[in-house]
Design a binder for these strands. Sequence first.
DNA 1: TGGCTATCTGAAAGCGCTTTCAAAATAGTC
DNA 2: GACTATTTTGAAAGCGCTTTCAGATAGCCA
Lengths: 350, 350
Amino acid sequence: MLDVPGEILEPLARSPVARDVAHRAGVSTATVSRVLNGSAGVRADKREAVMRAAQDLGFVANGAARALSTRRFMAVGAVVPNIENEAFVRVLSSFQERLRQAGYTLVAANAGYDLEDELREATFLLERGVDGLMLVGDIHHPDLHTRIARHGIPMVQTFSLSRERPCVGFDNAASAARAANYLVDLGHRRIGVISGLRKDNDRGGARVTGIAQALAARGLRLAPEHDIEISYGIGGGRDGFRQMLAGGPPPTAIICGTDQIAFGAMIEARARGLDVPGDLSVIGHNDSDFAPFLDPALTTIRIHSAEIGHAAGDHLIARMQGRPVVRLTQIDAELILRASTAPPRKQALD
Amino acid sequence: MLDVPGEILEPLARSPVARDVAHRAGVSTATVSRVLNGSAGVRADKREAVMRAAQDLGFVANGAARALSTRRFMAVGAVVPNIENEAFVRVLSSFQERLRQAGYTLVAANAGYDLEDELREATFLLERGVDGLMLVGDIHHPDLHTRIARHGIPMVQTFSLSRERPCVGFDNAASAARAANYLVDLGHRRIGVISGLRKDNDRGGARVTGIAQALAARGLRLAPEHDIEISYGIGGGRDGFRQMLAGGPPPTAIICGTDQIAFGAMIEARARGLDVPGDLSVIGHNDSDFAPFLDPALTTIRIHSAEIGHAAGDHLIARMQGRPVVRLTQIDAELILRASTAPPRKQALD
DNA sequence: TGGCTATCTGAAAGCGCTTTCAAAATAGTC
DNA sequence: GACTATTTTGAAAGCGCTTTCAGATAGCCA
């Protein structure tokens, strides 16, 4: 890093307030407020005058004053585990889209898969006065809901379903189970899982559970040495698959917690001379941009992130406006079949 | 999407305010404020009492009231072209990290590579009362700077250098030129470029210019048919390279605007039976997570996004606190050599 | 103990907007 | 033209916090 010396910069001037506009237009601030908020009952000529005055002065209402006065901040918060994760970014993006249309601002924060941190960030947002809050998953710090309740604002959870709380998501166990069943149908018998960290992460946990149960229902089992938990990312996927190979006879198929992990596993498999899908079928999660372009193209569980974001936005907006709303919105994930899955080779089956 | 009927939810209760705390602690709101803001000059026993009362009541200061009173919102805005773009997400993430430490909240918005939209989003943030603003690049709507100035808040631009305005970035032309020179040094003579959309995008434009100039300085030229502009993404890269092949003798090396584009170009090249790097050397931009894992591993220009975000954060914080600051911070990009670049085959050189 | 600082503390005045309430202006009626 | 029903309007009271200013307390020294 290199700092290039340059002119030193300085600040400020007083920006116009409602009284200035009122003066210029020859009315009271009450009327200015009425005009600017579109309330009815202002004579056309005064309305005109106010509009022009505001325009001339470049008046912009002070958000804090307005918020203080109306008791609404017109902002909603969102706390996601990892703001650099594609799926969360997509949700945030679509969530924001909706909020923006309704005049709300999105304030997002990062919790890094840690309950304490999540609580801290959420509290920070609450202090800011957000009018609503979006969270990811159904596992949170025990104090979190109390604090949210104390602020009396609506909250919605995303990505997973919840028994008690408002949520927009999908059945992680069921969709992962579907992937497992698909593999079993193809003829696979030894199926492994590489997931991200599962601590305090109901999505990851549910997926593995779903797979284990699906296998059990078909008379198979998820061997402990084929149930790997690693940190996210391509590197994690490589490590995970390496670990799996170290534990006895390799699986003929694996289901991964993200497409990045799947990508990593495929790389490691290839480095070990295994053919995908010949020797190893691979399924990812999320349907990332690159998934169709991998070689072979990656079979993956597509999560409709944009729809989740939209639905979560709609839910929160409705509640903030006092409209009734259903507690649970389910948006199903979808298994996208591509070239990384195939029946196992005969000799691998014994 | 499926809506499952559920209980209908409802709201509210009054949250405690400073006066409540004052009452409970037997002091005035002035003292409460002093304690909660850590101002000196409050006797220990009263301080204790206030702390406990606040704790018991679960008091959280109303952000709007505080903002109104202090004239500082403790929030800064950021408008980026595409919130789903890896490089921008990284910058936002590190930017936020710094802000958060200093007690500021980040409010981010999406402009989608459109000047009008950028103006709209920035105005929205300005209305919100942000205390500072981060933008990307040096090309903006003519009205934007006027509006920012009217609010009297500091602004910093990122990713590119600017002649007039505060900025944290790197010399896009120079770093792209370095990549071009490297290719020429390897022996390449026909070098192509696939960039993202260049309209209103000084980064993309500068990179191409830098490459063209570097080539010119070595007695070569960037042929128009080898100068391709496409929309971002892997698909864009494929299309771009296809277009390039349609335009006469193919280049022996290409420089791409992002790693995604490079990835797409590599896929297309392989689909055409070209070997990378044997028949085609490829250089990307950004050093994405997947770059080292592509086959072959991608040579790329690493942009130190995290440092840019940190520096931009530091810059804004300093100015918001009235401290002097240098106008321009340069953070150099770096050419990361991997396996996707090599000398051209002899027969390709004529 | 009295007198004089040095500390602490609370009353009160904003911050800039919205909104209520009653007065002023206008319109409508007979 | 007097009188009532409507609209329009502005004065003023908050919203909940910070901060100034002056008064109350405590601390010290003679």
